[in-house]
Write a protein that binds this DNA or RNA. Structure first.
Length: 479
DNA sequence: TCCACTCACACATTTGAACAGT
DNA sequence: AACTGTTCAAATGTGTGAGTGG
């Protein structure tokens, strides 16, 4: 199958455009495909739910991607963050999801850094890259660096590829972001839709024990009636529940997996810009969105160029994306002159946020986590300032891999919740009044309407762009 | 009563240290 | 010494379903 990803190149100034024709960097043609898209789609059709727990829970299906088009010898950093699908809170009623009200204020925003980062393009491309160790939590006070989400809210992961030699230069680098419509999900503390439960059990090896229905009920009989257990439980309740001792965090090296499943087509939206820029700014209009024609048709849009938007939301923008993904641009492009106005990066402000380290389990400062200040305002909480502490959720990794030490702490400042108009699967009917102006029930919308679009793009966007355009995705700080 | 959330649990896979063999 | 392969116990990852608390 062919890749149905949408490729959005940057729109570059005329003068640079010519350079782009010959400059391999400008010619960057990074492609990302989601592994196991069929599995994702089977979940998506029902309405994917991801369990979030206090100690942190992995996702299933796991986020695993294939990348191509990177410069083999250039170094890249891979990041993942979760973006709100809309500004609503949902509830499961009977057999379907319904809007239950406005979304809760955005919790501390965190970004997961792939433990192999930074690594050369050849490393990322040689095999599928998995984010198996990434965990989701509903604990806003989480000390392990997991991604914090609200239960009963919808999100979807974004994958960022940053060309940077080390974590310190991330802020100066060019980002390319990809999203896959079928990866959207509703965060829950307990499964709501039994169909999802069944799919999980049928596909997740760890849930294998639940496949034999006959033994389940019997095996747990009298579990809670045992006095000893009750005492134990009581005791545990007395202890501070916040002291989660899970060892989760010490995730070990998350290597690239050998197995390389056949790639199925996956819709990908790619953005080249600084995630710190506002999503709305990037909103593009309608490319491929809602295409009833399927991937083939969407491919026609693959040449569409998105222009990084001019950011309208000023604060906390870290830097601008360089117009050129060239290595040099990663550290200097921003500056200034080089990128021209068409990118609108002018609104990006370089800023070094306060950084707070997040201790890992040993109590030592986590080498991989840094809390960054600034939580983008949430549409539903317009007055909220950027005072939130943001963390880069970085699992420990084996430093030896590829000889690329993981530079420790660096943080991300984050971002914001974007309440892009969404993608909705059938299970998510458009929010009731007052619904967002452009909430599309069809998941294909996701593809183009989301954050990926660049605001400046041709000047037209969705009606609700304004709502979320002011929220930068996130920013990083370096120590 | 309702319902989102928490917890200990049984059972599954994965990890990684220790060891053996080449 | 450097690798590779084998064990196997500990660590981890699952959904369950009763219980909690607002």
């Amino acid at each position: 199958t062919e890749h149905a990803y949408l490729k959005h190149n940057f729109s570059i100034p005329p003068t640079s455009a010519m350079a782009g024709a010959t400059d391999p960097y400008l010619q960057s043609n990074i492609r990302m495909t989601l592994e196991d898209p069929e599995l994702w789609k089977s979940f998506h059709e029902i309405g994917t739910e991801m369990i979030i727990t206090k100690p942190g829970r992995r996702m299933f299906p796991h986020c695993k991607i294939n990348i191509s088009g990177l410069v083999p010898y250039a170094k890249y950093i891979l990041l993942v963050d979760m973006v709100p699908e809309d500004g609503y809170r949902y509830k499961w009623n009977k057999d379907k999801w319904e809007v239950a009200g406005k979304a809760e204020p955005q919790p501390p925003y965190r970004t997961y850094l792939h433990p192999d980062s930074p690594a050369p393009g050849s490393h990322w491309m040689k095999q599928a890259v998995s984010f198996l160790k990434m965990k989701l939590t509903n604990n806003a006070l989480d000390q392990h660096g997991h991604i914090i989400l609200h239960s009963m809210h919808r999100y979807h992961p974004r994958f960022h590829i940053v060309q940077a030699d080390d974590l310190y230069s991330v802020r100066w680098s060019v980002f390319q972001t990809f999203t896959f419509p079928e990866t959207s999900f509703t965060a829950v503390t307990a499964y709501q839709n039994t169909k999802i439960t069944k799919l999980k059990i049928d596909n997740n090896p760890f849930a294998k024990g639940f496949r034999d229905e006959g033994t389940n009920s019997k095996r747990r009989a009298n579990r809670t009636s045992d006095p000893e257990r009750l005492a134990k439980r009581l005791n545990s309740m007395v202890n501070d529940s916040d002291q989660v001792q899970d060892s989760i965090c010490r995730s070990s090296y998350e290597g690239l997996e050998e197995e390389r499943a056949a790639l199925k087509e996956a819709e990908v939206k790619e953005e080249r810009y600084s995630p710190w820029g506002s999503a709305s700014d990037r909103e593009s209009h309608g490319l491929g969105r809602e295409s009833p024609l399927g991937s083939d048709a969407r491919d026609m849009y693959s040449t569409e160029q998105l222009v990084p938007g001019h950011s309208t939301y000023q604060p906390y923008r870290f830097h601008e994306y360089g117009k050129s993904p060239s290595p040099s641009s990663s550290s200097s492009s921003l500056g200034s002159s080089s990128s021209s106005g068409s990118m609108g990066r002018s609104s990006f402000e370089s800023r070094v946020p306060d950084v707070a380290t997040v201790p890992d389990q040993d109590g030592k400062p986590s080498a991989h986590e840094a809390a960054l200040p600034h939580c983008p305002p949430h549409p539903s909480a317009p007055s909220q300032d950027y005072a939130g502490v943001l963390n880069m959720a970085v699992p420990q990794s084996k430093p030896a891999i590829l000889g690329h030490p993981l530079y420790t702490p660096y943080g991300t400042e984050q971002a914001l919740g974007q309440w892009a108009s969404g993608t909705g699967s059938a299970q998510y009917p458009p929010p009731p009044p007052p619904p967002p102006p452009h909430h599309h029930p069809h998941h294909h919308h996701h593809l183009t309407t989301d954050y990926s679009s660049q605001a400046a793009h041709h000047g037209y966007h969705h009606g609700n762009v304004g709502d979320w355009s002011q929220y930068p995705l996130f920013s990083y700080s370096c120590w």
